[in-house]
Simulated assay, not measured.
Amino acid sequence: MDRQRLSSIAHSHHPIAAPISGVNVNRLLRRADRRPAARILDLGCGQAAWAMQALAHYPDGHADAVDTSHHALEHAAAAAEARGLADRLTLHERDARRYVPDGDYDLVLCIGSTHIFDGVVGTLKAAGRHVNPDGILVLGECFWQAPPTPAALTALDVAPADHTDLAGLVDVVEEAGWTPVHAHVSDAAEWDNYEWSWVGSLTEWALDNPGHPDAADALAVAREHRDGWLRGYRDVLGFVTLVLRRI
């Protein structure tokens, strides 16, 4: 099954493609420096849920949202139309590493997409180029909430050094010239809601489309993901969303 289509289905009931609730997304965006006519950029936007919610906080703002997934951007376009935001949201189907904007942004979002830029340091460098001198960068990233177990490493297909603990992550951010002015650490309920939604959405799609050639594959992926989470990285992997300004 096409991985981008699979991800789009898995996030159909949780378009905020990270373990964080809508309430806390809004709290984070309120802590960003609000300007009515802000320019917003969402890198690796998925279904552009963050960009659209940011527009609700910036009534005269405009957002650019960038992703390689045609399936996710189709969902984003439909959602923007339904919410009356289509004229303030521009979707770009391209590699975020090659996005060349027209000017700087007041708010740049990169939530759960640091892999695009080969990690946190690369993301801060690349995304930071788009942030104006007084702007805000909102970064969502995983960290080790507890020492990684062999089961967690296997489930995530990572090495221990691929993440640090929360304090180490903040150190990395500050060494790169940024500092948190606010943050939210996702709690167990947010993680559980996200993971059950991911697994459940994919499972429901497979059960509702038993004759589809990808149904068996989708069901197998959902089971594998669920087992990796429940038996591997649950309560081991953490997620933090940092509101950053330049030092």
Rank of each mutant, 00 (worst) to 15 (best):
H71Y: 09
P160G: 00
P160V: 03
A188N: 14
L107C: 05
Y58W: 14
T241P: 02
Q53Y: 06
L202M: 12
R34T: 14
R246D: 07
G122P: 05
V100K: 13
H75M: 11
A49L: 05
L242C: 04
D171T: 15
D67M: 05
Y58Q: 15
V173I: 14
A218H: 10
H92V: 11
G200P: 02
A189K: 09
H225I: 15
L43C: 06
W191S: 13
A32W: 07
Q47Y: 02
V170I: 15
A126I: 06
D42A: 04
C45H: 00
V121D: 09
V121H: 02
A188S: 14
M1F: 07
A222Y: 00
A215N: 08
R88E: 08
T154L: 00
A161P: 01
G44P: 03
L29I: 13
A10L: 02
N26W: 00
D227R: 10
A189S: 12
L202G: 09
E174Y: 01
A86R: 14
A18L: 07
L219E: 11
Q47C: 10
I9T: 15
T123Q: 04
E224H: 09
L91E: 05
R27K: 12
V100W: 07
A17T: 12
L237W: 01
L91Y: 05
A49N: 05
V243T: 14
R97M: 04
A76K: 04
W196C: 13
E74F: 00
Y105L: 11
L230Q: 13
D33L: 08
D60Y: 05
E141Y: 05
A206V: 09
L73T: 07
A10V: 06
C142L: 12
A82V: 08
P147C: 02
T114K: 01
W198M: 13
C45T: 12
L153P: 01
D208K: 07
A63R: 06
A72D: 12
L109W: 03
P147L: 06
L139H: 02
P213M: 06
L219A: 12
D214R: 01
V170K: 10
H184C: 11
A222V: 04
V172G: 01
L153R: 03
I40V: 08
G22T: 10
E74D: 10
L166F: 05
S186M: 02
E141M: 07
A151W: 00
D165H: 01
L153A: 02
G232V: 09
A151N: 06
S21F: 04
A77K: 10
G228M: 08
D42H: 00
A82W: 06
L169Q: 09
V173T: 13
